[in-house]
Design a protein around this nucleic acid. Sequence first.
RNA 1: GCGGACGUAGCUCAGCUGGUAGAGCGCCGGUUUGUGGUACCGGUGGUCGCGGGUUCAAGUCCCGUCGUUCGCCCCA
Length: 416
Amino acid sequence: MSSIQPVRGTHDLIGEDQRRHAHVVHTARRIAGVYGFDEWATPIFEDTRVFSRSLGDTSDVVSKEMYSFSDRDGESLTLRPEGTAAICRALVTNALTQSLPQKVFYAGPMFRHERPQKGRYRQFHQIGAELLGAAEPLADAEAIAMGYEVLKALGIADYVTLELNTLGDAASRDAWRDALVAYFSAHKDKLSEDSLTRLEKNPLRILDSKDAGDKVLVADAPMMAEFLTPEARAFWDDLRNKLDVFGIAYTVNPSIVRGLDYYNHTTFEFVTNRLGSQGTVLAGGRYDGLVKQMGGPEVPAIGWAAGIERLSMLLGQVPAAPRSVVLVPVGTPDESAVVQILQGLRGQGLRTEIGYKGSLRKRMERAGKQNASHVLFLGEDELAKGLFRVKNMETGAEQEVSRDTLLSKAQDVFAA
RNA sequence: GCGGACGUAGCUCAGCUGGUAGAGCGCCGGUUUGUGGUACCGGUGGUCGCGGGUUCAAGUCCCGUCGUUCGCCCCA
């Protein structure tokens, strides 16, 4: 094979793949609308600092996964690895911090230079929601409820469970982090190699370790709950009450710490066991400090993102391919009369195609292969009489329809 | 970035202990351009991922490389 291959970790969306993908986006967009979110589209590349500042220099995303390059002016640009930082940048640069809250929905490609795996690609696609300018747990609950609603509408809520945790406010998180570092530092000799680097870079991540030895240590590690300030505890309690009110089931999982630096208070993940080790399907949390890092004022915010590829793979019901009405000329009918009918049907909003060549038998065969819903025969006789045969390709039944009916009530004719 | 498995026609695969490739499906055409999804007939289609090596001879053994896949790290 000497033809040029697609870049590693990228893939084409064609046919059923594209239909699954589009169905996820359309469904999420619809539900976001119901919840009062507006869709934003931001550039797919940004000043590198948009991400390097916000995600944390030591996060893997920044330190080894970004697609960064300098453009012809020598400026460092980066293909966006995630959506939240860019949305916050857009909030600030469009001066929308003056009109809060902003409820934002987005969908589009993201880029991360990782080893491809099931449900993980170098160019992948996310849908996401950000609720900017609301500090109340009600906002968290609403964001989570909306995410759940999307999963439900996609028919995958049954395979998925919500895992919830709190990181507390800055004071709680710092105190806890210090306690963890102290605890794990005292047991360095028992830590796995991976966790030793985590201890330097992101100690919270040790809690998530799959190493058996680490797990033993983690069992006795200081718990976040012990370090929550009264305010943070009140927030946490309130959030769980609100989720109950929304009727959303969850399990508390203290190891949901999220990888990116900007999170505080609420963190959550909807996870499934149907995607191997890539089980996180929709995840997010609260990030009260991020907008300020982007040079804006203090704006509390909560949001989530979901991988479209992962959601697509879980879809039970594959969206059906569209079906056409196919015009089959018989003999050599007058072309302008045929086109008149073709365009007349399209004018009424019907997906209509015409068989270009081949014997009648061939054209019928093709109509069948392209999954036509109906075939409309156009022979010289029909055109002369103004009476046409319509064949339902599903049942094989035929009926006669007048030209007038075709040109004015085609929807009714081809409904059955 | 690390480890395992795999890589033969568009697709799914066969090819025994090395002797220069097969099937099914698909695709194209035909069974008189007034009728498809069935049937029958015919045809197209692979420098066996790529590059080296061993050998008289490699799809079949060895090395490398690229790609896919599963897991780790990380993450959606």
